[in-house]
Simulated assay, not measured.
Amino acid sequence: MSDLPTLVVVTGMSGSGKSVALATLEDLGYYCTDNLPADLLPDFVRSVGREAETPQKLAVGIDVRNRHQHLSRIPRWLSAVGALGFDPRLVFFDTADPVLIKRYAETRRRHPLSHRGLSLADAIAQERQILRPLRMLADAVIDTSELNVHQMRRRVTTELGLGDSELSLLFESFAYRRGVPGDADFVFDARGLPNPHWEPRLRPLSGRDPEVSEYLDHSAEFGEYFAQVAGFLDTWLPRMRSGTRSYVTVAFGCSGGRHRSVYLAEKLAAHARDRGWEDVATYHRELD
């Protein structure tokens, strides 16, 4: 990376890991925003640049949800960003079609082009056609077909010259009914804790919401569970630092993967940061 203030434009196929990339950049101190209309790129840089403490590292997510005629003009707007004194970099995330189809089947999310009445395979093919000029323009292309979340984070830091040798920690939440994550190093079962799902006002929320965290924090069972798990991880995670190991995944499961497991992952990630761990991320399989 140059010494100039940086703008990283994250783009690519839907389901290829762009949200993981933006979360990684945010963890590394970038000011991030997702789904920015492409024509607002120069205005976004100008607006942030007016702040008293101007961030030197910006990142935006731009993808097929944009107006397609705007995507074709991105080179012009990147040039305008460069004229504002920023070093713009375009990073394209790609994934093989069969892997994308599998990921959509696992998450049950809708493809951004599905509103056109297309099958998933046709929507992916059309998206690839629309984004082809951006892939050709990209400063870096990252293929995530064979990468897990940890490896995606490592590739982002490597491609942007931000990597270090610190052990990377991922705190992940999941629903047991959809299986335990295959790459988890530690798995903790939260199904014995009080379930916010049975509270009508909390059911539509997630473990990211303060109402859910307040409900769980007032539970004696949750306090005891958290203290025991935190103590275990405080003891054993430092012992996993080695020259041959680059990441550890700690997974929390509950029935739906929305409340208890999500809050535990977020709370333990915050606890790890407080304990001095630098490369800490969260991933919520049933939400992200």
Rank of each mutant, 00 (worst) to 15 (best):
A125E: 12
L147K: 09
H150R: 13
G117F: 00
E146S: 10
F93E: 09
I142W: 10
T157R: 13
R132D: 14
R135C: 12
L100W: 06
H115G: 04
R103Y: 15
E159C: 12
D143N: 07
R116G: 01
D97C: 11
L113C: 05
G163Q: 11
L162Y: 10
R110W: 02
M152W: 02
I142P: 11
V149P: 13
Q126C: 13
M152S: 06
L120Y: 00
L162C: 02
V141G: 03
L160P: 08
R109T: 00
L120N: 00
I101K: 13
Q126K: 08
A140F: 08
I142M: 05
R108L: 12
I130L: 03
D143P: 12
R109K: 04
S145L: 01
M152Y: 02
D139I: 04
R153Q: 14
Q151G: 03
E106A: 07
R135G: 09
L134T: 02
R155D: 03
D143A: 04
G161N: 06
R128L: 03
R103T: 15
N148E: 13
A123I: 00
I124G: 01
T95Q: 12
I142L: 13
R155L: 07
L160A: 03
V99Y: 01
T107I: 01
D94T: 06
S119Q: 10
H115Y: 11
R154Q: 12
R153N: 10
G163W: 09
L134A: 02
R135K: 14
S119R: 10
R103M: 12
R154Y: 08
N148L: 14
L131W: 15
T95P: 08
L147Q: 07
Q129M: 10
T158Y: 02
L160R: 07
I124V: 11
H111A: 07
V99A: 13
E127C: 07
R103K: 14
G163S: 13
L118A: 09
R116N: 03
R109E: 01
L134G: 09
R116K: 14
A140H: 09
S145W: 05
M152I: 13
D122M: 00
